[in-house]
């Protein structure tokens, strides 16, 4: 197979575009796709301060790398979830990445912030680990972005992630979630920072290829708590379709964004956003979901480790 640009031996095939690229032309194509998403969806500009949520996995470190190469003011934010060796290694990868490039990384330690790690938090509150993890991330990313004055939070959700969530929301008929699923969530309230997903045009296999070609050192092991997660099952099903019908994931998600989502805008939850009585963060309830979760866990532990009203992040 030959590179469609220079006819050298190809390294990466992009079947959904009926194309293949050599290493250098693949990197060029990849960065162009990210730039196109940022521009087309008006995610941010070069004067904005972007907070990139980094887990230490391939997608988030690739996103951070690309944004820096494209000249954006991108700072990393890593949340240590307190999952033993996995979390230690994940933080180490993020710190090495930041050190090698001389860029700033904010680290939030979940056990230090609310007394327990994400597994214990889930166990004490009867949630599955991924749910406690997702809730903690959404809360803390927004809180840190506000406290440090960032304009936008960027997460590394890729085409596969978005297609799997879309399928899940379709299966469960979750109209509100479908109406909100988009590459950009605008700042609808002064305390809700804008959120963007610059990798939504790129498949997971392509971010992995980019990481290998750029020599980005990431955590290869999966989070030990995600084994058997529903998302993985949905991705497997979509990848079976993709194998025999290239472009399925892209058509599913892009057609949804272009043709179906506009029909759902009446279903955007019109609930008023207010300040949480306990922590002041935006919520639609009296007390936000994160405070309710951490307070329930604290009550079970019989200790008073309510979420701190003080800054939770530490700069190295």
């Amino acid at each position: 197979m030959r590179c469609v640009r220079c006819k050298a031996t190809a390294s990466v095939e992009v079947r959904r575009h009926n194309a293949a690229y050599c290493g250098p032309h693949f990197l060029e194509w990849f960065e162009h796709q990210v730039q196109r998403a940022v521009d087309r969806d008006r995610m941010f500009t070069r004067s904005d301060r972007v907070l990139v949520a980094v887990s230490g996995g391939k997608d988030s470190l690739v996103l951070w790398d690309v944004l820096l190469r494209l000249g954006y003011r991108a700072t990393g934010l890593h949340l240590n979830l307190g999952i033993g060796e996995y979390s230690r290694l994940s933080q180490e990868k993020c710190e090495s990445f930041a050190r090698e490039r001389g860029v700033e990384l904010v680290v939030v330690d979940l056990p230090a912030t609310c007394g327990v790690g994400v597994e214990e938090l889930a166990r004490l509150t009867g949630r599955v680990a991924c749910s406690a993890c997702g809730l903690s991330k959404r809360y803390l990313f927004n809180k840190v972005a506000l406290e440090y004055g960032f304009d936008v939070v960027a997460t590394a959700h890729n085409l596969d992630d978005e297609a799997a969530v879309l399928l899940s929301n379709l299966i469960s008929g979750n109209v509100e979630a479908l109406a909100r699923q988009a590459p950009v969530l605008e700042r609808t309230h002064p305390a809700l920072v804008k959120k963007v997903k610059p990798l939504y045009r790129i498949a997971e296999r392509e971010t992995a290829a980019y990481a290998v070609l750029r020599g980005i050192d990431y955590v290869l092991d999966e989070c030990p708590r995600s084994v058997g997660a529903r998302t993985l099952l949905l991705k497997e099903a979509l990848n079976l379709l993709e194998r025999d019908a290239p472009g399925t994931k892209q058509s599913l998600y892009w057609n949804f964004l272009e043709k179906l989502r506009p029909l759902l805008q009446d279903h955007q939850a019109p609930l008023p956003v207010r300040s949480c009585l306990h922590c002041g963060q935006p919520t639609t309830a009296e007390v936000c979901a994160f405070c309710r979760m951490t307070e329930r866990a604290a009550a079970k532990l019989r200790v008073r480790t309510l979420p701190s009203p003080h800054p939770v992040a530490s700069l190295p």
């Binding site: 996995g57 391939k58 997608d59 599955v128 991924c130 749910s131 993890c133 997702g134 809730l135 959404r138 809360y139 927004n142 959700h157 596969d160 992630d161 799997a164 969530v165 899940s168 929301n169 979630a177 909100r180 699923q181 809700l192 997971e204 296999r205 971010t207 992995a208 290998v212 290869l220 999966e222 989070c223 708590r225 995600s226 997660a229 529903r230 998302t231 993985l232 991705k235 497997e236 990848n239 963060q281 935006p282 919520t283 639609t284 936000c288 979901a289 994160f290």
Partner: peptide
């Protein structure tokens, strides 16, 4: 052979 699929639940919800 390196896997490319990573998981966890990414439900789209706001706090």
């Amino acid at each position: 052979i390196r896997p490319v699929v990573s998981g966890g639940d990414h439900a789209v919800r706001e706090v």
